[in-house]
Design a protein around this nucleic acid. Sequence first.
DNA 1: AATAGTGTCAACCGCCCCAGC
DNA 2: AGCTGGGGCGGTTGACACTAT
Length: 364
Amino acid sequence: MGRAPCCEKANVKKGPWSPEEDAKLKAYIEENGTGNNWIALPQKIGLKRCGKSCRLRWLNYLRPNIKHGGFTEEEDNIICSLYISIGSRWSIIAAQLPGRTDNDIKNYWNTRLKKKLLGKRKQTQMNRLLLASGQDLKESNGLEENSLLQNLSNSALERLQLHMQLQTQQNPLSFYNNPSLWPKLTPLQQKMIQTLQANGLNQNQSPLYASINSNENQAHELGQKSGINEFASTNFKVNEVGKSTPIDDFDNKKNVVDKNVGQENTRELHIQGVQDFTQLEIDDMILNNKGSIGLNLPSENQQIVEFDCFNEIDDGSRDNLGWWSNDFDTNTTSSSNSWGSSSNILQNSHEGIYQDYALGYNLQ
DNA sequence: AATAGTGTCAACCGCCCCAGC
DNA sequence: AGCTGGGGCGGTTGACACTAT
């Protein structure tokens, strides 16, 4: 049983808005405001439209100072940075780009930016491979092309790694830099990681790889800290380096997230098995930011690690988070299913960290 | 010129959150 | 405390435009 529709579907016009409808809506709102009731608004104006449709039309097209198209490189970079950081939270991203709407940005990302990103990435990978082999693609035989494709396939994993690196560099107290938080790997996981290594992933930079070489006791320690068995559902709130406290139930965890959003860098990692993912799935995770990357755990025991690390960040860094805090002061929606914010990403993007990520993603 | 394929984007859908009762 | 309904959001759809064959 679903909830009742917000309006009488039969009496409601759908589809593109006519200039007359636009004019009516615009004139009314400019004169009277929305009255904080979109549902009642169309009746007042005499529009046969759903209130939500009116709201959308106003917010996306009719309100003043809306920009359409013509995204600048600066805007591209901001969108990418924020997307990497917080995922598909378009309204938050839009709030950082004056005149842009969430719908516009969402469309732009889905239709152009995402492809631009992947295209550059693959081109760069291809160039490197050709450079390394000293061969021209035209000279490649079928076998070599397969090899190239294989390497391109690995690029998704590399992007995964770059994504992790970015997170790590931005947040020195992150999960990736805190071995005590790394779960013990199963033999299958170890095999997977070894495969990754064999395919050229840099073990020094890979927390995944590092975790299999870490002392097994760390994994046991992880379980002990949480007071539960390995691979059991575990929530941590990391308060200081190397210290973590378990958060036993989901509601508590959710409260921590809600409370900290905007003020502190609460970050969640939803950890699932990697070896089960195909390249397309990993691509999907990265590009669609499903927020689920990391180590293998039974699906029913999804592990969530939270980071509450802004306490450790100096005031100067905090000052740069104003835009984020301000935004979240009015955006208290749950972030329970997405990557938390690395709020200094914009600043960092001008200081080299973004460039690291941009090894393969540079949009310029 | 006709058709198929692809890209773009406005608009809708349905879910979630939260204030008000 | 529980329910209801509106606002807000992200995901998806479908119409139209453009390009390739």
